[in-house]
Simulated scan of single mutants.
Amino acid sequence: MTAPTLKPVHALLALLVMVIWGTNFVVIKLALAHLPPLTFAALRFTLAALPAAFFIKRPAVAWRTLAAYGVLIGVGQFGLLYIAMRGSISPGLASLVVQTQAFFTIGLSMAFTGERLRGFQVAALLLATAGLGWLMAHGGTDVTPLGLGLVLIAAMSWAAGNTVQRAANPANILGFVVWSSLFAIPPLFALALLFDGWPAIAAGLTRSTPATWAAVLWQSVGNTLFGYAAWGWLLGRYPAATISPLSLLVPVFGMAASAALLGEPLLAWKVTAAALVLSGLALNTFWPMLQRRRAGVHAGNVKTARTR
């Protein structure tokens, strides 16, 4: 049985979400020109949670689940991503490297469920690792060891957050994101005071422009509330096998937007690294789908033969 085809209007909605999530890395870079990274993250999750929490019902999941997801995504994923993007990795490459969360998700599944690493996953991981190695060999100022390390930890935090979310299986993903964001706010503001420092926070707020606040609002409303709500709505109407592969477009839009809007050069070594990482992600995504399709065709042929 093949996965259902997206209706044109739903395909456009999915494409819009990918454009938003991909170009979001450029928006992050623009806001970081004025705001310290942890301050920016704290403001982002404050506006994602408030005032929406007053209007959106709390999902029927444990408070500790909301807290775990909020801290993993708020502090672990975006806090570290923003620090890295302050000057240790370019927006285009950040959009690519953070997608390695798919492989950390496999690792967490192995650790908690006893799932064994399969052959195609080994091949996919080797391709992605080769791409990351190529980045470090040629990166220069576009990606430093610190930047790569921080984004990889951010990807691991994203994977852990996804694991928490899947275990909770909330019926209302938007409510889950809004209410979990409340738990990201206190640690982010505390870490901002500790690491950004009040003088830098005050200076950042003072020199912020309407464009800076528009970027913060875009992070909260466009990227988080609209993006997650639309994605959750699509996943509720189509199988994951139909929707999930579209996420491979995020680094494509991310690198293209960074090149077009920020002048980040798309050099041959970047394209090569991206091709290796995306090949690994594509193999990890599409190989199980291909195997299921083959199994379905084989089962159908056997059934047909038996009825003759």
Rank of each mutant, 00 (worst) to 15 (best):
G76W: 03
Q77C: 12
F78W: 07
F78C: 08
G79Q: 04
L81W: 02
Y82D: 03
I83T: 04
A84C: 08
R86H: 15
G87Y: 05
I89W: 01
I89G: 00
S90P: 06
S90L: 10
S90K: 07
P91R: 03
G92Y: 03
G92E: 04
G92F: 05
G92M: 08
L93S: 04
L93Y: 00
L93N: 05
L96N: 02
V97C: 02
V97Y: 00
V97L: 03
V98L: 00
V98Q: 00
Q99A: 07
T100P: 06
Q101D: 14
A102T: 13
A102F: 07
F104L: 07
I106T: 11
M110P: 08
M110Q: 15
M110N: 15
M110Y: 11
A111P: 05
F112Y: 14
T113Y: 15
T113H: 13
T113R: 15
G114A: 13
G114I: 07
E115Q: 15
E115N: 14
R116Y: 12
L117C: 13
R118M: 14
R118V: 13
G119Q: 12
G119I: 12
F120Y: 10
F120P: 05
F120A: 09
Q121G: 08
V122G: 09
A123E: 09
A124C: 09
L127F: 11
L127W: 09
A128C: 07
T129G: 08
A130L: 10
A130V: 10
L132D: 01
L132Y: 02
G133E: 09
W134M: 11
W134C: 10
L135Q: 03
L135C: 08
L135K: 01
M136T: 09
M136I: 13
